[in-house]
Design a protein around this nucleic acid. Structure first.
Length: 872
RNA sequence: GCGGACGUGGUGGAACUGGUAGACACACAGGACUUAAAAUCCUGAGGCGGCAACGCCGUGUGGGUUCGAUCCCCACCGUCCGCACCA
């Protein structure tokens, strides 16, 4: 029979239809048997999927299909992270409505995702901008409010002047807004917060239980939470110098052991004491003002000098009532960490040392590094912050650092100032509460009403959801909800008086903090269906980008706990994602025209090879520059459109290429050659299956009793491949699984020209195995091959084949033979051979005798089934 | 500055728990088929020396542990990532 090329795009549409009609990917909440919840981070509906999505969803799909074949009840849903700024910006630019823009995008992207052949349960599709979703989120908010986990406060916040909204700390990267890239300003505003700090310790501690998360992500979260153990220490103020009514100041320190090395106190320009002192000191007031104007961007911090101003106020050392220390206002002290006040120990802290040197303050060494002599040790330009032996420290002298910490801590806890202890042990966290207010339209409305007489009043359940008004205008900057003529004006639910709605909407990260829970029962009348959540959660395998290591993943860990504590979760579950995998980015070469404009890969023609590679701009015929390989981005135009690839090569080809070569956690370089290689393999596999299918004799033939050596070897290869592919899919090592499938394909090809009863049967078996093995990765091709092999079932419904254990182990093994650690030969011997037998055989090998050069053998090391080393 | 990861042929990468380094793929070269091309198939290849058998060298650099190190330890170099005036 003449082979025809496999027409991937056409056949893929066919099989997608078949799957959809059979509705085989719908997950049942009431199924018995083991469940497996596979989830990829849901996309923002920007309008088109990009290659990053293709990679992410392919990985998830391979895992989901594999688990399905392994007999799990798999939940593999998809939805849309649909609130957010781009919709609003589109509304401004194109004079459309965010909802219209968003839903049109969803429709387009859904079609694209479907063309990828993903095994998704579309019946659970949700969009976070849909009132049916955000209504439930508003209920959650109110329950958190009732629990004190949501609250309102005035504080300094990060203001993004381009997006005209507040940002959470996690959303400020290098002093810039995470979306807009604008330098963030500081503003004092009254905002809504989630009390994530209530869970600081739990979020940190529980990281240790997440053994299926990347170490890197856990570390990043631990650093972000930033736990430190220290003490709050109260210092009495010298009455003569202190402002009226100020009697003490409290500092936070992690190094109370260095208290005798203190030479000054420093407070933030925003510290109440600084403000009070500034009332009477114009120069100080000016200094504080100057500090506030200083930016907080990285560049500014790096160049900023340590600046201070002596308030003239003096504080009494907590361990020595006769020791007065100056209190300075310093530009490097942060009001929102600790107490906004520190004591400076210049010998033990580089920053304090710099400050002391600049203002000529005392530098007293209190910790003697190991190996140094107390008589000669001095601090020059470098502080010593390590451990050592205490010196110049009164009752602490001679103790080591840890013991000194304990001794001071105990003493400070016993000593009193006024009627309270001078010191108290305190654990501090870097983590701040999550500011969720956004001054934007396209987000979930915060369901409260502000009443002049009743204060903040929750919107009653019967009035939920608080819907976004559809007739908002986007022609002016600022919050469309705030300037809407009628929307915000309501009667107070409590007293009935005139009141106004909250016009802030929630950070979109709130939406994505619980969507995985909603997927378990997307139509439930309550936010969470307890039974469904209990059955499906936690997510068994979560896959997404590393960029969410802190943001989304920390928020979700918090929010899941908070909603559980408010009564919406699965019992005895604290962590929503049991296993996390962070995949690498998709990168591509960049091209620039001689006019300096970025060019799409499709706009250039590549010529030559190796060091001679050139790019030519097709339109102009002029040479173009080949630039660095970078993450695919609109700005650099190094984009390849998944639609084009799927139309030309098919989804299976794109999927296979995404899985090949690069380890999934690393970046993959998209190349035309790589895609073509994947395409070639598809055709090759198809030809192989056609040829097999035509070997009619093997189909349904009885299993031979004797196979013969070649058939036996092929069977071993096939079953070993099956075994290894299974394990590599299980551990998401797709590139290795792909390589093993190639090996099996090579082994089958090598045998195709030969024929015997045993070999025909083994070939048929091996072919069926390879078709099943590619099933999760290239599902359409697998169906096509399965059908071509004569089956009228769906391979998507076939159980994963089991490897025959007997074929995974050989009777004989080939082991390496070394002389003095250098490989000289190899030896094939019965697996059961004893050490004596192996030793004897090794010593007779010609290369061994030669390498020994007549020297006597000192000993022979035999590692069974691995290696033999003859030591001479 | 602090913390972490990584470094293997021309390229992407593989190597189980310390046990034959370079699987598999891409690119390349030679050959077959073809009027020709495409497609396909076969063969070759880490480097150096050698006709070959074979020998020597080889996983960023330098040391160490070990019968044996890509893997463990120490130091250094380079790349990438995260955090960063955090008291």
């Amino acid at each position: 029979m003449a082979s025809e090329r496999y027409n991937a795009p056409a056949r893929e549409r066919h099989w997608q239809q078949v799957w959809e009609t059979a509705d085989i990917f719908r997950a049942a909440n009431d199924a018995s048997g083991p469940k497996c919840y596979v989830l990829e981070m849901f996309p923002y509906p920007s309008g088109r999927i990009h290659m990053g999505h293709v990679r992410n969803y392919t990985m998830g799909d391979v895992f989901a299909r594999y688990k399905r074949a392994k007999g799990f009840n798999v939940l593999h849903p998809m939805g849309w992270d649909a609130f957010g700024m781009p919709a609003e910006n589109a509304a401004i630019e194109r004079k459309t409505h965010p909802a219209k823009w968003t839903y049109a995008n969803i429709e387009a992207m859904k079609a694209q995702l479907k063309s990828m052949g993903l095994s998704l349960d579309w019946s659970r599709e949700l969009a976070t901008c849909d009132p049916s979703y955000y209504a439930q989120q508003q209920k959650l908010f109110l329950d958190l409010l009732a629990k004190g986990l949501a609250y309102r406060k005035s504080s300094k916040v990060n203001w993004d002047p381009v997006d005209n909204t507040v940002l959470a700390n996690e959303q400020v990267i290098d002093g810039r807004g995470w979306r807009s890239g604008a330098l963030v300003e500081t503003r004092e505003l009254t905002q809504w917060f989630f009390r994530i700090t209530h869970y600081s310790d739990e979020l940190l501690e529980a990281l240790a239980t997440l053994d299926k998360w990347p170490e890197k992500v856990r570390l990043m979260q631990a650093n972000w939470i930033g736990r430190s153990e220290g003490m709050l220490v109260r210092w009495g103020l010298d009455k003569r110098s202190a402002p009226q009514g100020s009697t003490e100041i409290e500092v936070y320190t992690t190094r109370p052991d260095t208290l005798y090395g203190a030479s000054f106190l420093a407070i933030s320009p925003d510290h109440p004491l600084a403000k009070k002192a500034a009332e009477k000191d114009r120069k100080l007031a000016a200094f504080c003002e100057e500090c506030r104007r200083m930016g907080t961007s990285v560049a500014e911090l790096e160049t900023a000098e340590k600046k201070g101003y002596d308030t003239g106020i003096r504080a009494r050392h907590p361990l020595d009532k006769d020791w007065l220390l100056p209190i300075w206002v310093a530009n490097f002290v942060l009001m929102d960490y600790g107490t906004g006040a520190i004591f400076g120990c210049p010998s033990g802290d580089q920053r304090d040392l710099d400050f002391a040197r600049a203002y000529d303050l005392p530098v007293v060494p209190v910790i003697l590094p190991p190996g140094e002599d107390a008589a000669t040790f001095t601090i020059g330009t470098e502080a010593y912050d390590g451990d050592g032996t205490m010196i110049n420290s009164d009752f602490l002298d001679g103790l080591d650092t840890k013991a000194a910490f304990e001794a001071v801590a105990t003493k400070l806890e016993q000593k009193t100032l006024g009627d309270r202890p001078v010191g108290a042990r305190k654990v501090n966290y870097r983590l701040r509460d999550w500011g969720i207010s956004r001054q934007r339209y396209w987000g979930c409305p915060i369901p409260v009403v502000h009443c002049p007489s009743c204060g903040v009043v929750p919107v009653p359940a019967k009035d939920l959801p608080v819907r976004l008004p559809e007739d908002a205008t986007f022609d002016k900057p600022g919050n469309p909800l705030d300037r809407h003529p009628t929307w915000k004006h309501v009667d107070c639910p409590t007293c009935g008086g005139k009141a106004t709605r909250e016009t802030d909407t929630m950070d979109t990260f709130v939406d994505s903090s619980w969507y995985y829970v909603r997927f378990t029962a997307p139509d439930a009348p309550t936010p969470v269906d307890a039974r469904a959540a209990q059955y499906w959660l936690p997510v068994d395998q979560y896959i997404g980008g590393i960029e969410h290591a802190i943001l989304h993943l920390l928020y979700s860990r918090f929010f899941y706990r908070a909603m559980s504590d408010a009564g919406h979760g699965a019992k005895n579950l604290r962590e929503p994602f049991a296993a996390l995998f962070t995949q690498g980015m998709v990168t591509h070469e960049t091209y620039k025209s001689d006019a300096g404009a970025w060019l799409l890969p499709s706009e250039v023609r590549l010529e030559g090879e190796g060091g001679e590679r050139r790019a030519v701009e097709i339109a102009s015929g002029r040479p173009a520059a080949i630039g660095a390989i970078e993450k695919m981005s609109k700005s650099k135009k190094n984009l390849v459109d998944p639609d084009d690839i799927i139309a030309q090569w098919g989804a299976d080809c794109a999927r296979w290429f995404m899985l090949s070569d690069s380890p999934p956690e690393r970046d993959v370089i998209w190349t035309e050659a790589g895609v073509a290689g994947a395409g070639r393999f598809i055709q090759r596999l198809w030809r192989l299956v056609e040829e097999m299918a035509d070997k009619a004799a093997a189909k349904g033939a009885a299993r031979p009793t004797e196979f013969g050596a070649e058939a036996e070897a092929l069977r071993r290869t096939a079953h070993r491949t099956l075994d290894q592919v299974s394990r590599n899919i299980e551990t998401l090592r797709f590139n290795v699984a792909v390589a093993q499938i190639y090996e099996l394909a090579n082994a089958i090809s090598g045998m195709l020209s030969k024929s015997s009863a045993g070999l025909d049967w083994a070939l048929r078996e091996a072919t069926e195995i390879i078709v099943q093995a590619i099933g999760p990765m290239m599902p359409h091709l697998a169906e096509e091959c399965w059908a071509r092999l004569g089956y009228n079932t769906l391979i998507a419904n076939q159980p994963w084949p089991a490897a025959e254990p007997g074929l995974l182990v050989d009777d004989s093994v080939t082991i390496a033979v070394q002389v003095n650690g250098k490989r000289r030969d190899e030896l094939t011997i019965a697996r059961s051979a004893g050490n004596d037998e192996i030793e004897a055989a090794v010593l007779e090998l010609e290369p061994v005798i030669r390498a020994l050069e007549g020297r006597p053998v000192k000993k022979i090391i035999v590692v069974p089934q691995r290696i033999v080393n003859v030591v001479a």
